[in-house]
């Protein structure tokens, strides 16, 4: 067997994303701030994982490290290991720079502000398609974009392609965003609170649509959300993150049937329910929130050797 094909076999078995002992410290004028502490997580091919925590817990920091964006900033210390497929991306930006928008893409929380207001949607599709195929013609790019828009049920693709983002509704923009994220057929999509700026019914439709498309292509997804309901519906496995550290790791079924970490229990208790009055209280902090990671059975990353 040639080394090249051996690599492909391993690539197929390996996790799409493997993060080990990731720590991130920001240097600020008021002193260092530890945004992530010893975070370990993995995403297998075709798997959808959820990353749940409050705002400020470090969810988005993980996303920015995975895309290699944080490493390009000053005054940030990143340590540990982040592998995309078999390639380590910490310490060497070249691979992740090539991969962004191609092997890895991202769905943003608010598509309306994530799309450039001064270029047409068609221009932005062309720009993203050029990431994979730098010589693609305008006609070919628009052809691909039309198909992608039909996939997200936008029925007048030509009108959408000729539009600017402010001419589309929030729901349409989010669909455009999804089509953009999928158009280069990435191995991994990072979805940062997708659609949370939309109203609830539009968000639900958009998320179902995204889930369908991703499921059909067996794309791996890292879902970032503060919304346990969304995670419960779409994730296979969940990491709960609290103040920069993972506190509980379980399959979705395990987590909701048997939440073990005090912080997870507090989060679950905080979901507003129609049969109760008002909004439940989440304590700012209790000693138990700092308990060490609880990992449920069968969730460990399979080692390459045994796979």
């Amino acid at each position: 067997m040639s080394p090249a094909s051996a690599a492909t076999v391993n690539e197929r078995k390996a996790a799409v994303l493997a993060v080990r002992s990731l720590s991130v410290t920001f240097q600020s004028p008021t002193g260092p701030f530890e945004a992530l502490r010893n975070v370990t997580l993995h995403v297998r091919p075709g798997e959808k994982i959820g990353l749940v925590g409050e705002s400020g817990s470090g969810k988005s920091t993980i996303a920015r490290v995975v895309l290699g964006l944080l490493q390009e900033e000053r005054d940030v210390a990143v340590s540990g290991s982040v592998r995309l497929g078999l390639r380590e991306i910490l310490g060497d930006q070249s691979f992740i720079r090539e991969s962004r928008g191609d092997r890895v893409s991202m769905i943003f929380q608010d598509a309306v502000s994530a799309l450039n207001p001064t270029f047409t949607i068609g221009d932005q599709f062309k720009e993203v398609l050029r990431r994979r195929n730098p010589t693609i013609s305008t006609a070919a790019a628009l052809r691909r974009a039309r198909v992608a828009l039909a996939d997200v049920y936008l029925h007048e693709p030509d009108r959408v392609l000729g539009s600017y983002v402010f001419q589309l509704s929030g729901g349409m923009s989010q669909r455009v965003m999804i089509a953009l994220a999928l158009i280069n057929d990435p191995d991994l999509i990072v979805a940062d609170e997708p659609g949370s700026s939309l109203d609830v019914t539009v968000q639900a439709r958009t998320l179902h649509l995204m889930n369908d498309l991703i499921g059909r292509r067996r794309t791996s997804v890292m879902f970032i959300s503060h919304n346990l309901g969304v995670v419960r519906e779409f994730a296979d496995r969940v990491y709960v993150i609290y103040r920069g550290g993972i506190v509980e790791h379980a399959t979705t079924a395990q987590l909701f049937a048997d939440p073990r970490h005090p912080y997870t229990r507090a989060l679950l208790a905080a979901i507003p329910r129609l049969d109760q009055r008002g909004i439940p209280d989440v304590p700012e902090t209790i000693p138990g929130f700092a308990d060490p990671l609880i990992e449920h059975e069968g969730c460990e990353e399979p080692s390459l050797a045994s796979a």
Binding site: R100, D102, S105, M106, A114, L115, N116, F119, V128, R131
Partner: peptide, 22 residues
């Protein structure tokens, strides 16, 4: 600082292209 520039970075648009166009 706008989200659409973060998106451009996340999608790997070249720095010069972001600066001169996007």
């Amino acid at each position: 600082r706008k989200p659409f520039i973060e998106m451009a970075h996340a999608y790997g648009f070249r720095e010069a292209r972001i600066s001169n166009r996007y």
